[in-house]
Write a protein that binds this DNA or RNA. Structure first.
Lengths: 195, 195
DNA sequence: TTTTAATCTAATCAC
DNA sequence: GTGATTAGATTAAT
């Protein structure tokens, strides 16, 4: 069969969503995604216990505004006022999805959220990688794309990991500066008291 | 010769910095970087005219505080108060580097800055890639690492391009919501005036 | 000129 | 403690 292909597995969790509208409809490239994959429902290959599917998308249904990571709107319609080109059929299906889960289910999902949030596994840099990164940081704490790419190549890391490392390293430096300034002020204050 | 290796090219721009202290000194991995590479002085292979070397790191010497991208401190020492482990020899070399350039040179570099700022070349997504990303976004605007990796694989993009795309897409959605809300308020206001 | 990819900070999460 | 993610502001390529 030529033309659009679509993997749609029927599960108890998504009986109404057998299709992702508009998916794989391009003329140039064949692209298929399962609903489970898009919503993060796919079972992990290993390391994840049965009965604990990956459901970070459930964030949308929890209604906890105190935590920025819990007020995530999974489904964001194009606003008809400004972007009035959204398909009503798509919206209807999505709304059905949104309403499908009971309050009890939402609460149980909320408990599961802390269990896994769909993050990239934490990268464990080697001592050598850290050493090189620190030395480069001393010379240039804002490396451009070419330096980052070179580092990535030589340290066998993704360029994005390098980028994030420098962002966090700059934050750390700024924090230590703030802390030392605070200590300086505090020490001056204490010294003045003892005079 | 076994042990630490270091590429240090002698150029007119860096006569005092023939070594990056601490570089390539790891026991486990051989890693060498040239000063030019670290500071972004290396000539691009192609596509960049002669006399226009890639110098995003010159940002540090320009002293324009109005632009956050022009107040970049290339050299950030460890604060001795809290992180008093920095090598004074290293610091001295780095200071020499920082002072090496004349005001005239700084000004000419400032002109070159607008020409190139060391960014990743702008990714031009294909229509098909955008279509798929938009459709996934409708279902889940916060895809976890596995969905992003799957998208990256199927769309032949880096995972971090996907990540950035979703970040920008969420910002766009939020912006459009703000704009439509503003329009709504404005229309209500106008209607009330006409009553 | 407009749109949006890329970069940054700051705060926070989570291992 | 630090790698990862987010919002938000801004820059800059198209």
């Amino acid at each position: 069969m030529a033309g659009p292909s679509l993997c749609a597995a029927t599960t108890a969790a998504s009986p109404d969503l057998h299709k992702v509208p508009g998916f794989g409809e391009s003329k140039t490239t064949q692209c298929s995604f399962s609903i489970e994959s898009i919503l993060g429902l796919e079972q992990k290959k290993d390391g994840i216990p049965a009965g604990k599917p990956h459901r970070p998308w459930m964030d949308a249904f929890l209604g906890d505004d105190s935590n920025p990571h819990l007020q995530i709107p999974v489904v964001c319609y194009e606003n008809p006022l400004f972007h009035g080109r959204s398909d009503p059929v798509q919206e209807e299906k999505v709304l059905k999805c949104e309403k499908y889960f009971s309050v009890t289910e939402r609460l149980s999902f909320k408990r599961e959220l802390s269990w896994y949030r769909g993050r990239r596994p934490r990268t464990a840099f080697t001592r050598n990688q850290i050493e090189v990164l620190e030395n480069v940081f001393k010379m240039n704490s804002y490396p451009g794309i070419d330096i980052r790419e070179e580092l990535a190549r030589k340290l066998d890391l993704d360029e994005d990991r390098i980028q994030i490392w420098f962002q966090n390293r700059r934050a750390k430096l700024k924090r230590s500066h703030r802390e030392s300034q605070f200590l300086m002020v505090k020490n001056t204050f204490t010294s003045n008291l003892l005079e």
